[in-house]
Design a protein around this nucleic acid. Structure first.
Lengths: 152, 152
DNA sequence: CTTGACCTTTCCATTATGGGAACCTTCATC
DNA sequence: GATGAAGGTTCCCATAATGGAAAGGTCAAG
């Protein structure tokens, strides 16, 4: 099976399959005399595994860990569980951040008439409430030299 | 005020201030004879506006739109509201995707003993449930019949 | 006048993905 | 056998937003 067929059968694009190969996530497959990559059933399993993990939001690095655990017959399921739980926590954290932004924005939108007049609490808030907290300011000036400040 | 002070006072890193300048999000400020960038109160307002918008998850492009609306005395608040509402929807959509992943993973984790044994429904699921979709499955069985399996 | 903190520009790296060019291979069809 | 379409190969480029590092100029305090 060549790369296009493997892509269609796994749901991972040919482009990404080659990429995963270059970064060492998957092994280099055999080649035909003409240089075409040749994939077999095992490769397909791996690719499907990868697509599924990717759909669950795992990073390439985490997929590497998962693949290693998958192939390791002697690993304890606790290892897998730990990885999954950490990922769940990260997903929830990110989601919560987004929802927090959404709530804030929703509050502002609620106060905005949204008519043809120009008064707009949304912009007013963006313009003014931006310098909340002197701690932050002090913190920033003290810290930014040594740590990257991403202010979140 | 030079760039370091502007950064500390706005919460936007010096690096990012320069970046925003190169991409045209903010205007190039004046310079001292030595070439140092010089910022004034107005610039500071803009930078604070930017940081606040960034904290709300707006992209650079959207910040550009917001800035334009902010500076445009004649714009209708409805324009701002529309932009904000679209952004709220996008935030909610992303959050929902993350939560959906989280839920799926949580379900799998729930079924995993997480002990020293190797049985692990998480990996099993990743390995197996990946081939939903009949097109794909049909394709696979058609294709794999003609090629020997050359795994790794 | 030296020192250290700050400024300048330029280049590189990150993550995961896609696009495109230039060129070669396979295969079906005329 | 020639031809063209479809698909393979590599290599380079681009994305969004951010940081890091290098090499060098500037400023204020000692």
């Amino acid at each position: 099976m060549n790369i296009g067929e493997a892509a269609a059968a796994s749901g991972v694009s040919a482009k990404m399959i080659r990429y995963y190969e270059t970064i060492g996530l998957i092994a280099a497959p055999g080649r035909t005399a003409a240089g075409y990559r040749v994939y077999g059933e095992n490769d397909l399993h791996t690719l499907r595994f990868i697509r599924r993990a990717r759909d669950l939001g795992f990073s390439v690095e985490q997929m590497g860990e998962l693949l290693a655990l998958w192939r390791d017959r002697s690993r304890a399921s606790a290892d897998v569980k730990r990885l999954a739980e950490r990922h769940i926590a990260a997903l929830d954290r990110k989601a919560e951040q987004l929802l927090e932004m959404s709530r804030t924005l929703r509050r502002l939108v609620h106060e905005c008439h949204g008519d043809r007049r120009s008064a707009c609490p949304i912009l007013d808030d963006l313009a003014e409430s931006a310098d909340e907290g002197d701690d932050r300011r002090r913190l920033v000036s003290t810290i930014t030299s040594q740590f990257g400040d991403r202010g979140r």
